[in-house]
Design a protein around this nucleic acid. Structure first.
Lengths: 161, 161
DNA sequence: CAAGAAGCCTAGTAAATTAGTCGGAATAAT
DNA sequence: ATTATTCCGACTAATTTACTAGGCTTCTTG
């Protein structure tokens, strides 16, 4: 099991999409600027999100991505699963063949942990996150920064004149 | 955050130690055979476990390792922490400087997740695991296999004559 | 219709991590 | 003295992460 920048980026990007819902398709360039994630990397993540039916894409100018389902119907666990390949904590992928075909000493512990993590993350929808105070504050801050063109360049290129 | 074979091996080895407590020092060779973990790799893990005051070593023939504290006083979270470097799910190490000095959109989510995982794992002691039925069953199976010298070689070298 | 803005796709890559191996000391019981 | 053990450091193949680069496809618009 691993939870790295990859899964975190995916959830952050999906939340960005949820926050700007109703404004038509959101381009990856916008998300890249707002969230400070490399555009090409976002493309790769969204390829997986699209394959997993979490987002819907619109090509051409004015295009971008939209959530495929309502934000209340998308939970954090499936977003991470889509890009990572499961939040499973066992080494045997829950098959129970961890030690030469048989279960290892700690197999059940890792199963329990997996259930715990999955239960926690699948209980949180994008809608839940959108309604959180801290999320709204951060989103407002990001919008203020986006409104200042120089700051925007300074933060993405990391060099002020 | 990552939970891989490394942390799983460490917990498994510590549990093996807990199961064979009271029989004097347990050698890594024994643990290696019983749990199917490479001896050299175990050495590396135990170096960290020793540095973190989780085990106590006895050198020379008849030597080995023992739990430094009672098994009820050692929880799974600290074992994983000792070899991995924390079960933290945030990228900023909880400092909140995830996006150019400020908190990112999903910072609080990862903090909550970290607390969740840590709470779960720190609530489970080695003594708790020892008392579980499944653990006792696996331990008995391992002892039966250990008693058969040919099987022992077959499982570790993976070649039967 | 052409330009350009977007998504899409493939390939490559530096750095880090994992899960080891190998060889050799140091230490202590027999 | 021999031997079983911990201890220590260096090395390594494979994998993953977090990118970049380049080019192609699709669709809007001027």
């Amino acid at each position: 099991m691993r939870l790295t920048t990859k899964g975190r980026y995916a959830v952050t990007a999906m939340l960005d999409l949820a926050l700007h819902e109703g404004k038509g398709p959101i381009s990856l360039a916008d998300i890249s600027e707002r969230q400070g994630i490399s555009l090409s990397y976002l493309e790769q993540l969204f390829a997986k999100l699209r394959r997993n039916e979490l987002v819907h894409s619109v090509r051409g100018p004015g295009g971008g991505y939209q959530l495929k389902r309502e934000r209340g119907e998308i939970n954090v666990a499936e977003v991470i699963d889509a890009v990572n390949e499961s939040v499973d904590a066992t080494g045997c992928n829950k098959t129970g063949s961890c030690q030469s075909g048989e279960v290892c000493l700690t197999h059940h512990l890792w199963c329990d942990l997996s259930d715990q993590i999955h239960g926690f993350l699948s209980g949180i929808s994008l809608a839940d996150l959108v309604h959180r105070h801290e999320v709204q504050e951060v989103a407002e801050r990001q919008q203020r920064v986006m409104a200042q063109p120089e700051k925007l360049i300074a933060s993405s290129v990391a060099s002020a004149s």
